[in-house]
Design a protein around this nucleic acid. Structure first.
Lengths: 332, 332
DNA sequence: CGGAGCCGTGAGAGCGCTCTCTGGAAGAGT
DNA sequence: ACTCTTCCAGAGAGCGCTCTCACGGCTCCG
């Protein structure tokens, strides 16, 4: 493997100084056209590519940004399309800005410190933290150390941390209102974990609508897994056999609820209508296909990227969610 | 944000030379214990973290490795747990080796060149290419440029490229044999795209077993989407109404087949048994839960990582797959 | 007791780049 | 014609680190 050419070589070949070559390569306009061309030719001929390390050393920029996922939940990347969408969105923006995406899965204590070290040490120009638990201490720590941080999902630790979140409350409200409009009267909820912002907000949305309509709320709490959805649904059926609709705080639990309803001999949507949240692929495959709330995950990624790059004002951004109506709430 | 301390400062504080401080930080044993301790203390007190750019500049190593995904298929990360597993595995190994994972989604022509540039320019000590299409030219290009490359999935472009793949042939064989053992006689296949190694190999496995058992093979080709699975199943039923089992080259298509069978009024597994491949989460939620072939995706990630890091001999590695038997092939 | 050998430390070069500062040529103004 | 400005190119410093080399002090052997 032959040594990569340096700026020095390019300059020599083009018959100019290193400084001038550098100017051309970095797109300065204050260079005579013919010289510019000579340099460009030399670059092509030698296949020159700037050494990022050397560049970073002097510019103090890394041109890369870390995307940190909390890995405790193995769900990351496997069941939950949110992450994939975010990555895709971030990736697209970064490509445009010519930044690199450094992916870090942090879960263990040790890897936390590793992320912290890595981020505070100039490796990276900023960090996007995709934490589901709003109480994650990492963002605040990094921010305090002067690293630009943006959170995906509203952090619960009050503070000035900029974030991008989905409109969980609004999405839940729309979903529950949809059930009301369809004429359902006893609308139960399967809530998510109340230590996660998404879990809290979606339950809030549900409560908001029911409160306004003077209907009683009936809530069971799950942990966002399918199994917990099944269990929660069983409890709900036992507590209130009259219920005719369920809002689940995510699709996985809705899928679990579907199973419990099937086992209990209730038809969906005939006896009980079901709404989920997330619009995971399996929601459309379900039997019956699941009405759910879709989130603009890719857009979320883009906004996160733009914000951490400073292309967009830092600050809370809440993206609209969209109700996707399928058979699980459509009168048979 | 205060300036980060340099090695110089640490050395000064410890009362030694820069060289010695560097030795301590890099774990050289040839330093007097008390000096070592003095340096370590200085490091702690100042919160010193080495500047990676400066280090890379002189060592010519980047301590990071690119993981390239071909993005044309939006499925990446959303429906397919393979990617997630690979990322997790790679990430774990990298963490141990203190390397960084740079994620690149390459799809467009432009981004291809970008990956090429980036990888050949010393940013990265190696590249893992997770291409589904074995004919991807990128790995060969990089290899020729002297960049250590490892492929996830066997590349079709014959060559010396080291790779890690799943035992697709063996998995398919086991799946089909399972159907034979269950007493099924007319076993059809829904094959994947024949320009993808996974598609080819899984069909080969199916054919191998049927050939040995003198049974006729009945094949419809899909494109790994659920819809194509539904369509393929319809064709198969039309062509051979007598069939009593189907092997689908992936779970998504198997799910599609399930739907077509339901629509056609065939019970599963009573009338027709169904086997998939991948063991995506939705396979276990399906109605009935799907018998399928599980792949050790995380292990794959680990092996890829170890290979590209040179911790493991480069060369073809084929990981065993595992048959997961569920209701879709269990006699009712 | 002197020289060879070894070990721990410091001095200093240099990795490849950017950027400031300086110099010289060309154009504008008087 | 001469000065003042403008503009473009080059010289050179220096980013923070590693690593080679030289050197002083020590031990060990003859």
């Amino acid at each position: 493997m032959r040594a990569r050419p340096t700026l020095e070589k390019v300059a020599a070949r083009a018959g100019v100084s290193r400084a001038t070559a550098s100017r051309v390569i970095n797109g300065s306009t204050r260079v005579a056209p013919q010289i510019r061309e000579a340099v460009n030719r030399a670059v092509d001929e030698l296949g020159y590519v700037p050494n990022q390390a050397a560049r970073s050393l002097v510019t103090q920029r890394a041109d890369s940004i870390a995307l940190v996922f909390p890995e405790p939940s193995t769900r990351v990347f496997s069941d939950d399309p949110t992450f994939g969408g975010i990555i895709r969105g971030v990736s697209m923006e970064f490509e445009e800005a010519d930044k690199q995406l450094v992916l870090m899965l942090a879960g263990t204590e040790g890897s936390y410190r590793r992320v912290e070290r890595y981020a505070t040490n100039g490796h990276v120009d900023g960090v996007i933290v995709a934490s589901m638990h709003g109480s994650d201490p990492l963002p605040a720590i990094l921010a305090r150390r002067g690293v630009p941080v943006v959170c995906s999902g509203r952090p619960t630790m009050a503070g000035e941390l900029p974030y991008v979140d989905m409109d969980n409350v609004g999405g839940a409200e729309r979903a529950v209102r949809h059930l009301l409009e369809r004429g359902h009267r006893r609308i139960a909820a399967i809530a998510g974990p109340q230590d996660m912002v998404a879990g809290i907000d979606r339950l809030t949305g549900y409560r908001n609508v029911l409160r306004d309509s003077d209907r009683r709320s009936i809530v069971a709490v799950g942990d966002f897994t399918r199994e917990s959805g099944t269990a929660a649904m069983r409890h709900l059926l036992a507590d209130d056999p009259e219920l005719d609709a369920v809002f689940a705080a995510n699709d996985l639990m809705a899928l679990g609820a579907l199973r419990a309803l099937r086992d209990a001999g209730r038809s969906v949507p005939g006896d009980v209508a079901v709404v989920g949240f997330d619009d995971i692929p399996a929601a459309s495959y379900a039997e019956p296909p699941l009405t759910t709330v879709r989130q603009p995950t890719e857009e979320m990624g883009r906004r996160l990227a733009r914000m951490v790059l400073g292309l967009e004002e830092r600050g809370p951004v809440v993206l609209p969610t969209e109700l996707v109506v399928r058979e699980s709430t459509r009168a048979a």
